[in-house]
Amino acid sequence: MCAYVFVRADMSACIRALTSVCVRAKGTFQINICETKNLIEAEGYPAEKHHVVTKDGYILEMHRIPFGKSSPNSRNRPVVFLMHGILGASNSFIYLGPEYSIAYNLADAGYDVWMGNARGTRNSRQHVSLNPDRNKSFFDFTFEEIALDDLPSMFDYMLAHTGQQKFHYIGHSQGGTVFLVLNSMSSAYHSKIASAHLLAGVGYQKNFPNYSLRTLALSADALYSVLWLGGSVELYPPGSTAMFGKSGSRGSIDDLFGIDTSSGLIAGAATKQIVHFGQNIRDKAFRRWDYGYVQNLVKYGKLSPTSYDLSKINIDVTLHYSLNDALLSESDVLLMAKDMPKATARKISRDSFTHLDYVTSKDVKVLLNDYIIQALRNS
Score class of each variant (00 low, 15 high):
residue 7 V to F: 04
residue 13 A to M: 04
residue 19 T to W: 00
residue 19 T to N: 15
residue 29 F to Y: 14
residue 29 F to Q: 15
residue 29 F to W: 07
residue 33 I to K: 03
residue 40 I to D: 01
residue 44 G to M: 01
residue 61 E to N: 14
residue 66 P to N: 00
residue 67 F to E: 10
residue 71 S to C: 02
residue 71 S to T: 08
residue 72 P to R: 05
residue 72 P to I: 01
residue 79 V to Y: 02
residue 79 V to E: 02
residue 80 V to L: 00
residue 85 G to K: 02
residue 85 G to W: 00
residue 86 I to A: 13
residue 91 N to G: 03
residue 94 I to G: 00
residue 96 L to D: 01
residue 97 G to V: 06
residue 102 I to E: 01
residue 105 N to E: 04
residue 105 N to C: 12
residue 117 N to Y: 06
residue 117 N to D: 10
residue 118 A to T: 15
residue 121 T to Y: 02
residue 124 S to P: 06
residue 124 S to D: 05
residue 129 S to F: 06
residue 136 K to P: 07
residue 136 K to C: 08
residue 138 F to S: 04
residue 144 E to S: 08
residue 149 D to A: 06
residue 162 T to P: 14
residue 162 T to A: 05
residue 165 Q to N: 14
residue 165 Q to G: 10
residue 166 K to E: 14
residue 170 I to A: 07
residue 174 Q to R: 09
residue 175 G to A: 11
residue 179 F to Q: 12
residue 180 L to C: 14
residue 183 N to A: 05
residue 183 N to M: 04
residue 185 M to P: 05
residue 192 K to A: 07
residue 194 A to G: 09
residue 195 S to R: 13
residue 197 H to P: 06
residue 197 H to Y: 14
residue 199 L to T: 12
residue 203 G to S: 15
residue 205 Q to H: 10
residue 208 F to I: 10
residue 210 N to C: 11
residue 215 T to D: 09
residue 217 A to W: 00
residue 223 L to W: 03
residue 224 Y to I: 05
residue 232 S to K: 14
residue 235 L to W: 00
residue 235 L to I: 14
residue 235 L to G: 10
residue 237 P to R: 08
residue 241 T to A: 12
residue 241 T to Q: 13
residue 241 T to L: 11
residue 244 F to Q: 09
residue 245 G to D: 13
residue 249 S to V: 13
residue 253 I to Q: 08
residue 253 I to G: 08
residue 257 F to R: 13
residue 258 G to A: 00
residue 259 I to C: 01
residue 260 D to G: 04
residue 264 G to T: 10
residue 264 G to V: 05
residue 265 L to I: 06
residue 267 A to N: 14
residue 269 A to T: 15
residue 271 T to N: 06
residue 278 G to T: 04
residue 284 K to H: 14
residue 289 W to P: 06
residue 292 G to E: 05
residue 294 V to P: 03
residue 300 Y to I: 08
residue 305 P to M: 11
residue 307 S to R: 12
residue 308 Y to A: 05
residue 309 D to C: 10
residue 312 K to R: 15
residue 315 I to K: 13
residue 317 V to M: 12
residue 318 T to W: 03
residue 323 L to C: 07
residue 324 N to F: 01
residue 327 L to I: 11
residue 341 P to E: 02
residue 344 T to K: 15
residue 357 D to C: 09
residue 360 T to D: 02
residue 362 K to I: 12
residue 364 V to N: 08
residue 364 V to A: 11
residue 375 A to C: 10
